[in-house]
Design a protein around this nucleic acid. Structure first.
Lengths: 217, 217
DNA sequence: ACACAAGTGTTTGTATACAAATATACAATG
DNA sequence: CATTGTATATTTGTATACAAACACTTGTGT
């Protein structure tokens, strides 16, 4: 079901530590500036330092922590400005992804997209937000994939967690869901008729609405 | 001198292994599909598996290799399409970076930019390509920094190696250097007078010219 | 009292040892 | 002959041990 983002086996200890730390930072349990000591985390989770180091490395490459050589890693966290910047970057990249998707989508991918949109209609009628969030994610992932660009997939995947948060808070706004559905439908139809420019514009509008817009154009 | 991209202490073994592997992939010594075995690399470089694992992790997060859990990592490499996609993405992101830089640049950063441009004039007159490549990199780094967006800095840093390659091959084209200098000057002047829209447009033109353009607009 | 150096403790960086998972070769069985 | 099960070898995942780097305290000399 969830084709993308299963970076690796979710049973591995490294990944458990990684997810633990990511959540802890997201929930504010570790604050900006806090020093993350490998040994303490290892003891807290009952594992050795090795998987902790791997998790920290991953967090570093995702820019959630900074590593000072021989001196440990400190939490970076995200400011409001950072989150706004991310939504602007999403605007740019998701628009381009939709553009490429319209040019490069396969019939198989088109079929999958259609199914997702139909499911969205179903759950919107039932006002089932949690299913809609999952479908929303799936919809966008399919477009990344259809874009055929490894790089854009990779970048958007690394922004995934921020994006997911934005999606959730957006869809829970009153009456947002029906409009969101209409926007998804427009994007899908533009891709279906291979209209790259329209796909891009609909996607940009969709992303801009979903996040409090603050663009350069 | 090189403020950005010094991810960590360049004396650490992890980083030596990382740079070795990155070069080996770039130079085609490891081909797409090749299986990278930790022990072999460790022996080849005379280190233990630990720094090799860290290096592989970094390569994985930079999307140069894929890791199959319990089965090792294989080289991904880059296709022509990938490289073209990267230049399109650069177009989008560097334009946005210049836009933000014009809005947020500090006097100190402006001074540094001016110095770089002046040095560029000097070395362009002497037709010293290698110094120009370094200054080109520095110029763009300063703009990423001035953009004040951690995320855009982070993404462009992860594309850094691809970008560097593009820059080098671009500047070695005959008579490219003087034009490149004029473009840099335009970008700098737009930022200096805090004209965000102009900065963005000049930067987009610059990136588009430097790479064989193939944009959506 | 203050500056500075040696020593101590903590923490990271690296090496190595061991366990778990997977691939491979080969034999047994239908 | 194909298939399946098992033993073996290779390789990754994890734990632990040790070395190097750094922060901090303490003691000494001026």
């Amino acid at each position: 079901m969830n084709g993308l983002y299963e970076h690796k086996d979710y049973g591995s200890l490294s990944d458990k530590v990684y997810r633990f730390l990511r959540n802890a930072i997201a929930e504010g349990r570790y604050q900006t500036g806090d020093c993350l000591v490998e040994m303490k985390i290892a003891e807290e989770l009952g594992v050795s330092r090795t998987p902790v180091r791997e998790a920290l490395k991953q967090l570093e490459l995702e820019d959630l922590v900074t590593s000072h050589p021989n001196r440990g890693v400190v939490v970076k966290g995200f400011s409001i400005e950072d989150l706004q910047d991310v939504s602007t970057i999403r605007h740019l990249l998701e628009g381009q992804a939709a553009f490429w998707a319209a040019q490069r989508v396969t019939d198989e991918q088109l079929k999958e997209l259609r199914e997702v949109v139909e499911l969205m209609e179903f759950y919107t009628a039932k006002n089932d937000i949690s299913h809609l969030v999952a479908l929303d994610t799936r919809f966008h992932e399919l477009i990344y994939e259809a874009s055929g660009s490894r790089t854009i997939r990779h970048i958007l995947a690394s922004l995934h967690h921020n994006i997911r948060k934005a999606r959730q808070s957006s869809l829970t706004l009153p009456d947002r869901a029906p409009n969101s559905l209409a926007e998804h439908l427009s994007i899908f139809q533009a891709i279906e008729r291979r209209d790259a420019q329209a796909a891009k514009e609909h996607m940009e509008a969709h992303v801009a609405i979903a996040a409090g817009n603050r663009m350069s154009e």
